[in-house]
Nucleic acid binder design. Structure first.
Lengths: 121, 121
DNA sequence: CAGTATCCTGTGAGATACTG
DNA sequence: CAGTATCTCACAGGATACTG
């Protein structure tokens, strides 16, 4: 039983989470499902520029990690609902922390970026 | 002046931060520089499997975003020191939130992953 | 509606070798 | 020591078309 993790180690399980969060589409899906139950098509609409293939991949990954629950109804036409699991909901907190930091400091980052671009170019 | 951000929008400035954090090497560098001033070679050692090229790219990006400060000394042999800026330090907090979540919940994610792998395969 | 199936491309990043 | 310079490749992810 491992009791402590070292994020600096590439094979550390913590890295798993960072990879997932860092994934291009994960955040969008998690945020969209915040407090909502959505169908495949609804997710597509809300996220915008995502293709069905990529949305499916993202959803499958999230499902596999126990963050999102998928419920299919045997109807015609088909209906499938996605929602966050308890684990998925708990992920909203750290994501919120990142988001708050972003909203507070993005302008500084953008300023710095612009300033270095002037010189760099 | 934009007063509110929507992370669900791909062109939202907040996305900038998520991209940066999601970058494969950013976290490693930020964590390594936590409370430390390190030279290029020291960073290489601590991070492990990173190549000089990639470390340079990561460092330049971080510098450009105002998260890391680079100080070069005109000596022979050359000496260059990297440290977090105040902005970089402030980023430690949200990263810490993610890290804590990871340390608490990784086992659940891994369990779920394993369970779905059994079925999926 | 909720996906699959294919094909294709950009680029993050590794390996390797060289330089001020 | 602290990087640059090339070359190469895998793979995330996009476009498009099709199906139970």
């Amino acid at each position: 039983m491992q009791t402590s993790y070292d994020v600096l180690s590439p094979n550390c399980p913590s890295r798993v989470v960072l990879n997932r969060i860092g994934d291009r589409w994960t955040i969008f899906v998690i945020m969209a499902l915040n407090g909502q139950v959505l169908r495949f098509g609804e997710l597509r609409e809300r996220i915008g520029a995502i293709t069905p293939k990529v949305l499916t991949e993202t959803l499958r990954a999230l499902e596999g990690d126990g963050l999102v629950a998928r419920e299919a109804f045997a109807e015609m036409p088909p209906r499938v609902e996605y929602r966050l699991t308890a684990l998925g909901v708990s992920l909203l907190e750290p994501i919120g922390a990142v988001r708050r930091w972003a909203e507070t400091h993005v302008s500084e980052v953008l300023d710095a970026r612009e300033r270095s671009a002037e010189v760099g170019a």
